[in-house]
Design a protein around this nucleic acid. Structure first.
Length: 793
RNA sequence: GGAGGGGUUGUCUAGACUGGUUAGGAUACCUGCCUUACACGCAGGUGGUCAUGGGUUCGAAUCCCAUCCCCUCCA
């Protein structure tokens, strides 16, 4: 019989046809059924990807391919799967991208105009991501994809703010905080990274006040903050200096007296052991000011210039002030020496510039009092893989201040507050609408506190995590549809990358608990980074960025997806290279050609699963069915732990190295032998049973090729409407033969290779006849083995 | 300074929790082969002191201790 499939290789251009047919069949649409509840519905709290630049990270593309496998796994396990997709469009990264792209500065163009530019940039970046996601065959709900900068989303963000404000969980405070001069905004601890940078440690002579010529050497990396110094500290255990505690020193250049105090944070081994405390050189300064009750001197303004407290050095960019002050200290002979050191420096995660600590008025969301309950929750959370729970625990143990949620930026959800011009008190609108106080009149006439009728709108926006931390609420229509919400919240699983555990994961836990009293999901699935082929992190500056789009175009989505599953172990970093992607293509080709081979044999109708129990099957067929059962068990186990490496590699191993290499070769003779109907049917039935199950097992990973083969060979109903196969263990006894069969076949192949064909003078071809005794333990397979190897005698 | 992960052939990786024949696979390389699904294939082969040192054990890639190196997170 001629094969139905004629093409010798899998043509991935078929993928786009399949996408269209899935679209028109509405294959992945989600609607709540009458009896659906939180247990039967499988809700994926999909990360809305952030468009921060081009190209989209190949690791992210792989990440979403795997999230799709989670969705498909759940469907094949019989769940009604809600797989939403949105795009995160708020916040700093896109502003920085826009500033670069259009060569503008945010504060130098009208706010309205800047927002327009951001939108244009976002739309462009977003299109690229959506196209990649579609091409990858993501089975998410594209028809309803949402944006975090939409009116609906921002209305919800503002509602949650208003609710929490009314509950007293948000407050305004003027306190020293991390400030990025480049971004012009306060940032949270979670947005800071640290880097060891070279700097000069400057040793300076300070005169002890009211003495003739007594001096002390102070070492500092921030001499430019001399004018904001309010104390000199030494460690109380440091005997070199203990006699000086209680005295004062005279600040050089500024001639102001400050006290010498004891504080444990002065490290005797660092510098001279004498530290000057300024407001604010670093986080330690903040702590010392608070603990020793020192009076703050505002040293730097929001633009990074020195304030009037710097005297002769006022109104200078910090760098210039530093240079000038050091020059002057030098010329007055105050510098004893300078030492080059590597200094651990806090850096803004976005702009990569050093952060300063300056006191500003900002909004804070209470989080410290929630840490105990969140720690309790974190114990209950299932992490896939468990190892990454540690990162969350570490973070929960290092949160020390409430979360500053306001940003002095433009492209974000506005903080919905108007301040009374008279009494300055904040007035909040009712929730349920989207407000833009910087350009709108307030939705009320008089101040709730004093009755005055003029207001000024808040100009600040929210930290972008204020928006994205409520995705589980947004997708479950919190505050919109009580019935829908009740049945879809908490979500089932949060898949996300490991680098945003302390931000997205943590903030979602916090916010959703504050708003609902529940943990947002019981399961968290964490994926590692895509790194370059040498294992290094990809970055534009290194030039090792791999663009996923051309690779998907060249090799097809299924190849990309199979690569992603078979090369990445759960939660670990994975290497990306064209070579490894191209290698994955081979398996699809193998699968396709097996399908081509099978397509020449019609499925026997008289065989049902029930009749398997009868002994109608020959031994070789029972043996492969035993191996198939083993495969099913392994795959289901892998799928249920969302570790796609396991099914991908075990399917490839079984299909290629057991099924194709040994079983198919062993039964080929029977399959073609029309004379012996019973043994022929037994083989053809088994071929199809194995192959259809291989397709089902591979469907979540390679949805395209499996669908094409499934529809060609087995059913007009999509493979993506099927359930995972079940094992029956009828032939478990036959597992023991696998090793012996493989060994024997190898032995014959080897023997032929090492024998010479007297007619040609060459090594025996595999089809040449040979005479070998089939070992007695393989008696049951003797006939098939003889035909396979053309064994005579 | 603290926490976590890792070091297996030219390259990548499985195995480690639960110690047990010859450390499995992929890729690259070499040799031969167009064998009625596939040359994007088939068969065979070369290649490993499982980071180093010590310990436990009849037996260690696996367990314990120490050392070195790499990565991530936190201060």
């Amino acid at each position: 019989m001629e094969p139905i499939i004629s093409s010798k290789s899998w043509n991935h251009e078929i993928e786009s046809q399949l996408l269209k047919s899935w679209d028109s069949e509405n294959l992945y649409s989600f609607t709540l059924k009458n009896n659906d509840n939180v247990d039967s519905v499988f809700v994926i709290d999909t990360p809305p990807p952030y468009p921060s630049g081009k190209p989209w990270h190949i690791g992210a593309a792989a990440h979403y391919a795997q999230i799709d496998m989670i969705a498909r796994t759940a469907r094949m396990n019989g769940h009604n799967v809600m797989f939403p997709i949105g795009i995160d469009r708020n916040g700093l990264p896109v502003e920085i991208y826009t500033e670069k792209k259009y060569k503008v500065r945010m504060r130098q163009v009208p706010r309205e105009k800047f927002l327009e530019l951001c939108k244009t940039a976002l739309d462009d970046l977003e299109n690229d991501m959506i196209e990649i996601m579609r091409n990858l065959g993501l089975s998410c709900n594209f028809k309803e994809y949402y944006r975090t900068d939409s009116i609906r989303f921002r209305t919800l963000t503002q509602k949650t703010f208003i609710d929490l404000w009314n509950e007293g969980l948000i407050y305004i405070s003027n306190r020293p905080n991390n400030y990025c001069i480049d971004c012009g905004t306060t940032i949270s601890d979670a947005e800071i990274i640290y880097d060891d940078l070279p700097t000069n440690l400057i040793y300076m002579f300070f005169n002890i006040a009211n003495t003739n010529d007594d001096k002390i050497v102070v070492a500092s990396t921030r001499p430019e903050l001399l004018y904001a110094c309010q104390a000199i500290i030494i460690n109380p255990k440091d005997q070199r200096y203990s006699h000086l505690i209680g005295k004062e020193v005279v600040l050089p250049l500024f001639n102001r007296n400050v006290p010498i105090l004891a504080h444990h944070s002065a490290k005797p081994g660092f510098g001279s052991g004498v530290v000057m405390v300024c407001s604010y050189g670093d986080h330690n300064d903040v702590q010392v000011f608070r603990e020793l009750n020192l009076k703050e001197i505002v040293s730097i303004d929001e633009n990074g210039y020195t304030t009037s407290s710097a005297g002769n050095y006022r109104n200078l960019k910090l760098k210039h002030a530093r240079q000038k002050i050091i020059d002057d200290l030098r010329s007055e002979g105050i510098i004893e020496r300078e030492e080059k050191i590597m200094h651990r420096t806090p850096i803004c995660e976005r702009s990569k510039t050093e952060i300063e600590i300056i006191p500003l008025q900002d909004y804070y969301l209470k989080q410290l009092e929630y840490l105990p309950i969140l720690k309790e929750f974190s114990n209950k959370l299932n992490f896939y893989p468990p190892i990454h729970k540690q990162t969350l625990k570490n973070w929960l143990n290092s949160v020390t201040i409430d979360w500053p949620i306001s940003r002095r930026r433009f492209y974000g959800t506005e903080i919905p507050i108007w301040f009374c011009q008279n009494c300055k008190s904040p007035n909040l609108p009712k929730s349920g609408k989207y407000y833009q106080p910087w350009k709108e009149k307030p939705p009320f006439d008089i101040c709730a506190s004093c009755g005055f009728n003029e207001f000024v709108g808040e100009e600040k926006t929210f930290d972008t995590w204020m928006d994205s931390s409520i995705t589980p609420l947004f997708i479950s229509k919190f505050s919109q549809g009580p019935e829908f919400y009740r049945r879809t919240y908490p979500a089932t699983i949060r898949p996300q990358a490991k680098d945003i555990i302390r931000t997205w994961l943590y903030y979602t836990m916090l916010r959703c608990y504050q708003l609902t009293g529940k943990l947002a999901w019981p399961n968290v699935w964490i994926m590692g980074f895509g790194v370059d082929e040498k294992g290094k992190k990809m970055s534009k500056s290194k030039g090792n960025v791999v663009d996923p789009f051309p690779l998907i175009q060249k090799y097809g989505a299924d190849t990309f997806r199979f690569w992603s599953a078979s090369e990445t172990n759960l939660g670990q970093d994975f290497r990306c290279s064209e070579q490894s992607i191209s290698n994955s293509q081979k398996f699809l080709s193998k699968l396709w050609n097996l399908g081509r081979f099978l397509s020449s044999f019609e499925i026997p109708k008289e065989f049902s699963t029930e009749s398997l129990k009868n002994n109608n099957l020959l031994h070789t067929d029972k043996w492969i069915l035993a191996e198939l059962d083993k495969l099913i068990n392994t795959c289901i186990k892998g799928y249920n732990s969302y570790n796609f490496f396991i099914p991908a590699t075990s399917i490839r191993d079984f299909t290629w190295n057991v099924f194709a290499s040994h079983y198919v070769e062993m039964i080929k003779g029977r399959a073609y032998d029309n004379e012996n109907k019973n043994s022929q049917i037994s083989s053809i039935y088994t071929l199809h049973r194995c192959f259809s199950i291989i397709l089902l097992l591979a469907a979540p990973i390679c949805p395209f090729i499996t669908e094409k083969l499934w529809k060609t060979l087995y059913s007009s109903d999509s493979i993506h409407n099927q359930k995972f196969p079940k094992t029956n263990d009828f032939f478990k006894d036959f597992e023991k033969y696998t090793e012996k069969i493989v060994e024997f076949n190898s032995f014959v192949w080897n023997k032929k290779k090492n024998s010479i064909n007297p007619n040609t003078g060459k090594a025996l071809s595999l089809k040449d006849a040979t005479s070998i005794n089939v070992p007695s333990e393989l008696n049951e397979f003797e006939q098939d083995l003889k035909t396979m190897h053309n064994i005579i005698g």
